[in-house]
Design a protein around this nucleic acid. Structure first.
Lengths: 143, 143
DNA sequence: CATAAACCTATCAGATAAATGGGTTATATC
DNA sequence: GATATAACCCATTTATCTGATAGGTTTATG
């Protein structure tokens, strides 16, 4: 499993917020209800997005969350790297990974690097705006 | 993490066996030593490969394991699907997954399906023979 | 001042990954 | 046939991560 529920929920929530962005600040409670996600769990997901500026939160009555930028500005990759500990397909390619002694002679390393790139390129090529395009359906994304 | 150590080890072992396939049956002990993997753990990995016919085991003195087919016959995908519980990038696309109620309206589903295909196509396009090509290096695999 | 809502910290339960341990059966050689 | 070798089989443990929960604090509005 490359992407956890955390990342999947985050994308669904951003898509939800993109669709409702005309309404201004939207309370977490409302998003959680619409998306069928526990409020508390959702809170922990949005936290990372707010901290990194993708979402803007406003406290108090009438507050909530809204997208900081236009939906076209968020690639799927941008979102997932904030919610997932790692998007590397294998442990050896992770950020803080202890450098592998066998790297120089490993017959599989470049194959993994290629997979990593294929995944990254794909995810960087899709934005939240693409997700909410009403016509979007299977077959759109390089299938 | 899409691919666990189990899958990574399996590929390294197959590459190892492809390089030494002229030597006939190779004892697990030898492979484990060459690859720096615990014998017991390696045993559990090879089990799945033998059961599915990718490897052939021979017991007793002079026994060991060998490739059943030529290295060109094993795609990386073939190997990984035997060692990994799932190669789906997200839970919703897994084999035994409970069908998602939101599937019909999910804004991210087709994006995940596209990712799944990108990964699968990449892994199906590389064989064990490619891994052991002496000239192989970063830049070979669609990078 | 009451209410709504984001924000913060900690904890827990369950699943999965990674590895280990101890035995049994088959084959070759002496 | 005895012995050594090596695959095969089953069960258990340990550690890590995911998913989720709980309770409290701060900030803004009316």
């Amino acid at each position: 499993m490359l992407v956890s529920t955390k990342g999947r929920y985050a994308l669904r929530v951003l898509a939800d917020m993109a669709e409702h962005r005309a309404e201004g600040y939207i309370p977490l409670k409302e998003i959680a209800r619409r998306q069928g996600i526990s409020e508390k769990y959702l809170e922990s997901i949005l936290k990372a997005l707010v901290k990194n500026g993708l979402l803007t939160g406003l406290r108090g009555k009438g507050g909530g969350y809204k997208l900081t930028y236009a939906p076209e500005q968020y690639t799927v990759w941008d979102v997932l790297r904030l919610t997932e500990d790692s998007l590397s397909p294998v442990a050896c390619l992770e950020d803080g990974a202890v450098p592998c002694q066998r790297a120089a002679v490993c017959p599989t390393l470049s194959m993994w690097q290629g997979l990593d790139k294929v995944i990254r390129d794909y995810l960087k090529g899709i934005t939240v705006a693409d997700l909410v395009r009403p016509e979007a359906g299977a077959g759109d994304y390089i299938i």
